[in-house]
Amino acid sequence: MDASKLSTGVAEREQRLQDAIRNTAPGTPLRVALDMILAGHLGALICVGDTENVLAAGDDGFKLDVSFTANRLFELCKMDGAVVIDRDITKILRANYHLNPDPSLPTSETGTRHRTAARMSLLTKATVISVSSRRSVVNVYVDGKGFQIKSVRDLFVLGNQLTVAMQNTRSQLDRSLLRLTSLELDDCVTLGDLTDIFYLFEVLMSAGSELDKCIVQLGSEGKIAQMQREEYLSGVDEAYTLMIRDYAVDSSDEAARTIRKRLHDTVNAQLRSAKLVAKILGYGDERGEDSIMTPLGLRTLSRVPVVRDGMADKIVDEYGSLQEILEAVDDDPQRLGEIGVKNPDILASSLHRMWGKGE
């Protein structure tokens, strides 16, 4: 299969799975019905969307074509067979519908209802929901892959664990970045220092991704977790990219995006290796953990209020590195005005204070 088509297929499947998770999240009419079904100790098989192909894979049942409500779905699930719902979850089209997917379609599921659900999701583009009355479990199937819906209580526990992890990691990261600024101004940053910080960045971003998945599953119950996530990730994206640009062999935005992806795709524990981080940044094997690394100064300059968007790049292009900028500020701060800095004295004063040379 063509690589682009494969990528498109994966992206489409992922989008359908995300839509299925959102449609079954707390606060949605479908989730209300599912909770009622679980509370009533009922089993259920529900097909959402791709109705033409779903109906072609079954027979019998009752033709309804009535408006969707949680109560109606709950009552209809008291009968055997499947309930067929339109893609927008506005109409219930069939009830007590007998599905006959191809039994040769592969599935690792064991129960009859779950096997049918998995095969129907392979045969069609429908989202297929299976509720087990015996185990009180709800599984959502897309392209044969099952996703178990967690209870709100379980999601709250997971969300709390992730927010605590993010809070602690963000505190460590903030302290490490403050220390890094001091080391940069004194020109004594080592590769080991960078390795520790890149590791913290990725731990924080990974926890944020996991919390985002949890928030999607929480639906209307996830607002507080969303606010916490935004707080702990505030400013992190820009700081991460600027730090990469400060130390990578290629400091372009495009290279920084590539490096960030490579860091993200690397198992977090492996990012504790200074040699691996050096390789990702574009250096050879000659760099060791104690190697001195010279920053361009983009991240430090971005912390100075008078350095507006794009100006940090101009300053770095003019001087080459943070240490050369500091030396130039000592020798002739007014030269900064010649390259577009509107308040060179304020910039010089800010850098002096950060360097500990302020009056």
Results as ranks from 00 to 15, higher is better:
residue 2 D to S: 15
residue 3 A to N: 15
residue 21 I to Q: 12
residue 26 P to L: 01
residue 32 V to H: 00
residue 36 M to V: 00
residue 38 L to H: 01
residue 40 G to H: 01
residue 40 G to M: 05
residue 41 H to F: 05
residue 42 L to G: 03
residue 48 V to E: 00
residue 52 E to W: 05
residue 58 G to H: 04
residue 59 D to T: 12
residue 60 D to T: 14
residue 61 G to L: 07
residue 65 D to R: 08
residue 67 S to T: 13
residue 77 C to P: 08
residue 82 A to V: 03
residue 88 D to N: 11
residue 91 K to W: 13
residue 95 A to C: 13
residue 97 Y to I: 06
residue 99 L to E: 04
residue 103 P to V: 10
residue 105 L to G: 01
residue 109 E to Q: 14
residue 110 T to F: 13
residue 114 H to R: 12
residue 121 S to C: 06
residue 130 S to K: 05
residue 132 S to H: 06
residue 133 S to A: 15
residue 141 Y to L: 07
residue 145 K to C: 10
residue 148 Q to A: 13
residue 152 V to F: 01
residue 154 D to S: 14
residue 165 A to G: 12
residue 167 Q to P: 00
residue 169 T to V: 12
residue 171 S to N: 13
residue 174 D to C: 09
residue 175 R to K: 13
residue 176 S to A: 15
residue 192 G to E: 11
residue 198 F to N: 08
residue 201 F to W: 10
residue 204 L to I: 11
residue 205 M to F: 11
residue 206 S to W: 08
residue 206 S to C: 11
residue 224 I to P: 05
residue 224 I to R: 02
residue 225 A to W: 06
residue 227 M to T: 07
residue 229 R to F: 07
residue 236 V to H: 00
residue 246 D to A: 05
residue 247 Y to S: 01
residue 252 S to M: 08
residue 267 V to D: 12
residue 267 V to Y: 10
residue 269 A to P: 01
residue 272 R to F: 12
residue 279 K to L: 11
residue 281 L to G: 06
residue 284 G to P: 00
residue 286 E to D: 09
residue 289 E to N: 07
residue 291 S to Y: 06
residue 293 M to S: 04
residue 305 P to Y: 09
residue 307 V to K: 02
residue 311 M to F: 14
residue 315 I to R: 10
residue 318 E to H: 15
residue 320 G to A: 09
residue 322 L to Q: 02
residue 329 V to I: 15
residue 336 L to M: 15
residue 336 L to C: 09
residue 337 G to L: 02
residue 339 I to E: 07
residue 340 G to H: 06
residue 345 D to W: 02
residue 356 G to H: 06
